[in-house]
């Protein structure tokens, strides 16, 4: 390597600046004349691939309320509720909280019936946070009555259990104070009965 004299360095700096500037301008000028590669979003949209992980959709008739997806979810954003009439399943709700959901697709794979999928819809725009708590059920007309029936079923179950517990307690001990709860339970219409029964 020969050393560069200050004069040479001075001239080299001038030359390099001019040359690399022109090289850069050539590149940018080339693109100035080319057609842009972006698309005008709301008017034209790029195709969304099949595997896109967007808002879920649920094949409700297939779902068996097994909670496998809810268990697989890292942030517990799936909640479901259904009443079982023998083999029939009456849905109350199947909610997915999109405030939390991070679209990791972990809920899709454990499903034994292959009924929850990631859709291609991605726009989540609302003016209210509570709207982000999606109900994935496609038909929910029966939901209110179903809820009442579920309450009733729960109540009956609770009564039965309470009676059983009372009986067991009566058999076991001399029967001092365990009757309190079984007395209260049937008369209580509001709130969660199963919770009351356990008290």
């Amino acid at each position: 390597m020969q050393t560069i004299t200050p004069t040479q360095r001075y001239l080299k700096n001038v030359w390099d600046t001019l040359k690399t500037t022109l090289v850069g301008m050539k590149i940018t000028g080339k693109y100035l004349l080319k057609k842009p590669i972006t698309v005008q979003y709301p008017d034209e949209r790029l195709p969304i691939p099949d595997r896109y992980r967007g808002i879920h959709y649920l094949e409700q008739e297939k779902c068996i309320n097994c909670l496998a997806c809810a268990r697989a979810c890292p942030i517990d954003c799936i909640e479901m509720e259904a009443v079982r009439h023998g083999k029939e399943l009456e849905w109350v709700s199947f909610t997915l909280d999109y405030q939390k959901c991070m679209f990791c697709e972990l809920c899709v794979y454990p499903c034994p019936k292959d009924c929850i999928h990631m859709g291609t819809e991605f726009a989540l725009v609302t003016t209210d946070r509570s709207e982000l708590n999606f109900d994935l059920l496609s038909f929910k007309g029966m939901a209110r009555e179903a809820k009442i029936r579920m309450r009733e079923a729960d109540k009956k179950k609770a009564e039965k259990e309470a009676a059983k517990a009372a009986k067991a307690a009566a058999e076991e001990a001399s029967g001092d104070s365990s009757d309190d709860t079984s007395d209260e339970a049937p008369g209580d219409n509001s709130g969660d009965n199963s919770g009351d029964a356990k008290e």
Binding site: Y31, L32, K34, P36, I37, T38
Partner: peptide, 8 residues
């Protein structure tokens, strides 16, 4: 700037 940067 837009067209230099491949956008509109």
């Amino acid at each position: 700037s837009g067209h230099i940067q491949c956008r509109y």
